[in-house]
Amino acid sequence: MDSGDKDAELLVLLSKVKRKYWKQNLTILSLLLIIWAAAGFGAGIFFSDSLNQITLPGTYYPLGFWFAHQGAIIIFLLVVLAYCLVMNRLDAEHSKDLEALGKKSQIQASQEQQSPDKARSGSSGKFSSLHSGSGQS
């Protein structure tokens, strides 16, 4: 009875952690895609004729032409690099959050040591049911 409440509390916490991760993920993704679109569609295409009025400093490249033939690709590469760095860090933070939750549930599990086996297997069953949809059909 008591352990059921704690499980529910853990589940709420877990879905909170997961939602936070997904939200951060979407923010990063949309920021990077805005840069991607601005470089490719913006500078490379829609504004290329206005940008062609100036040259890339230090070279004779008309700027719009440079974006279409060189600059966009360089920025795409930087976008993917930024994605690697930021997402790998976000993943690490996320798994730390999950670990903290995992420890919490361990403590609970050890508190329930005395309770009959049925309760324990029930609680871990509920917990792992969260992950049952991992897609390995």
Partner: peptide, 26 residues
């Protein structure tokens, strides 16, 4: 299907780690 989408959104490795922790036999 909804659960599958949820799982796809989670980063790889994170859930498994938690699952193992949660299922530990003391």
């Amino acid at each position: 299907v909804q659960k599958m989408v949820d799982a796809v959104r989670e980063p790889e490795g994170a859930s498994e780690a938690l699952e193992i922790e949660a299922a530990v036999e003391h």
